[in-house]
Computed example of a mutant assay.
Amino acid sequence: MRKLVPAFLALAAFLGGAAAGDMLKAPGPASAEGQDKAAEHSADQADAPGAGAAPAEAAAPAAHAPAAPPAAESAGHGGGGHGASAGSSPAWFKFPQQFFVPILHDGQLDSTMILSLSLEMPEGDRETVNAHELKLRDGLLRQLLIRANTGGFDGNFTAEPQLRALRAELLATAQGIVPAITGILIEDIARQER
């Protein structure tokens, strides 16, 4: 009897496993058929008039919508200006060379600030800005030196309030030379330690 009980248990386990396998296997074709029917149903809906047109029509206006004006983008980047006038598209002037500003402490060179700047202006004023490049560079460098000598580049100089104040100072200086300038972009800013 003790020898028969393990054999019966093994046989019952085998038969139970086979039955469970058949049960799991049976819904497979039905679910595959259900998937095929669902695919046919969605294909029929796509072929039906008006069906599926709404997403395509909704996407079409987004694709053909006019892009946001660059002046709004520059305001979002904190250009520091009022943006180009509504009737003209903005133009940009990038200074070909970086600005190097020495930082002195106790009369000794401590570090150097390195900045890349660009100016925003209406397209029609590009030639005026080009003609005043040297004066603009001199004025902006002078303002950067004043900021360096008053501790404006000490501590966390990349904090947004610090950068906003720097842009405002540089914009006021640039507008004193060419009033048409509407924004200052700080493209790169870094401090190189001695």
Rank of each mutant, 00 (worst) to 15 (best):
D138P: 09
D138S: 14
L140N: 06
L141C: 08
R142L: 15
R142W: 12
Q143M: 14
Q143C: 13
L144W: 00
L144H: 01
L144C: 10
L144P: 04
L144A: 05
L144R: 02
L144E: 02
I146L: 15
I146F: 13
I146C: 07
I146Y: 08
I146N: 13
I146P: 00
R147I: 14
R147D: 14
R147S: 15
R147G: 08
N149D: 12
N149H: 06
N149Y: 01
T150M: 03
T150S: 11
T150E: 10
G151R: 09
G151N: 09
G152Q: 10
F153P: 03
D154F: 13
D154Q: 15
G155E: 09
N156K: 06
N156I: 01
F157N: 01
F157M: 04
T158D: 08
A159E: 06
A159Q: 08
A159K: 01
E160H: 01
E160N: 00
E160P: 05
Q162M: 10
Q162R: 14
L163Y: 04
L163G: 04
L163W: 03
R164Q: 14
R164H: 10
R164F: 00
A165E: 06
A165G: 11
L166I: 01
L166C: 01
R167L: 00
A168R: 12
E169L: 12
L171I: 07
L171H: 06
A172E: 13
A172C: 05
A172D: 13
T173L: 07
T173M: 09
T173V: 14
A174M: 13
A174G: 11
A174I: 07
A174F: 09
Q175T: 12
Q175W: 01
Q175Y: 06
G176F: 08
G176V: 08
G176P: 09
I177M: 08
V178L: 13
V178S: 12
P179H: 03
A180H: 05
A180P: 07
I181P: 06
I181Q: 08
I181A: 11
G183T: 10
I184W: 03
I184D: 00
I186D: 02
E187M: 09
E187K: 07
E187I: 03
D188S: 07
D188R: 12
D188A: 10
D188F: 09
I189H: 00
I189L: 11
I189F: 06
A190N: 13
A190P: 07
A190W: 06
R191K: 15
R191C: 12
Q192V: 15
